[in-house]
Amino acid sequence: MSPLHPAAPVRPPAARLDVENLSLQFGGVKALDGIDLNVAPGSITALIGPNGAGKTSAFNSISGFYKPKTGTVRLDGEDITAVPARDRAKLGLARTFQNIALFRGMTVLDNIKLGRHAHLTAGVFDAFLYWGKAKREEMELRAEVERDVIDFLELDHIRNVPVAILPYGLQKKVELARALAMRPRILMLDEPVAGMNREETEDMARAILDVREEWGVTVLLVEHDMGMVMDISDHVCVLNFGRRIAAGTPEEVRNNPDVIKAYLGSSGDPRRAAEGHAPVGEVA
């Protein structure tokens, strides 16, 4: 390995995320109604709740995509509520989307490289000549992406395939890869295993655990697959109708009467789900 590429991936320290009193409204619909959420550094925290509970809305507010009506978002104690979405990427906030949001006309490799955009600095003149900084950066990027992301997630065989023709499960994995290329300090995954079969789900769950282990990042995930949530999370936060109804360890949450009621009233019982009868999340 050339001296340009140190053997160990750059490991940014895991971040802590604190959300306070977050509210968001769409016309008359209160998508979020004063929720609090604390994500400890290096933890895997799950945000769960029935359909329409406001999980994706919370993600969109945290990533700066929606402007919340009230509330603050703190990353490592620093208030980032007013930071525009594109600048949060640089702070180490990376996410995936419930509806896959890959760049369909590009290959897997280019999609992943795009994740690093905010960390690169070559300007347009270097780019035209493919000289100096542009060339150096691209070479380093390629080597890093190959080693830290493509090998890690076993995407070698599809790196030059256009993402549009990949099956759904692989597209989800490529989205995770792109988020990893962002060198996240906190990784937000919106339904990473929705629409996947058992085997793909286990594969993804292992990948998430490995990411936390080897990259040392904090993971915040939204998921309907209760089996997976109970298996891998350290901490669970439950939303219903835009309000937080419970938070705690998987065990505590599973036995919380409010949670049971919320799930019985909608798509299923989290206790039953945890035994392998996961309510099927929406695919799109």
């Binding site: 369909r104 006309g105 795009l114 542009a134």
Partner: peptide, 28 residues
């Protein structure tokens, strides 16, 4: 022009074409 699309600048252009919302979220 061909060089441009081997670098971050060109990729950013394509990202805008393919989906401008997630382009912004990855910092473009």
């Amino acid at each position: 022009a061909k060089n441009l699309f081997r670098t971050r600048v060109g990729r950013a252009f394509i990202a805008i074409r393919d989906r401008d919302i997630s382009a912004e979220i990855i910092g473009i």
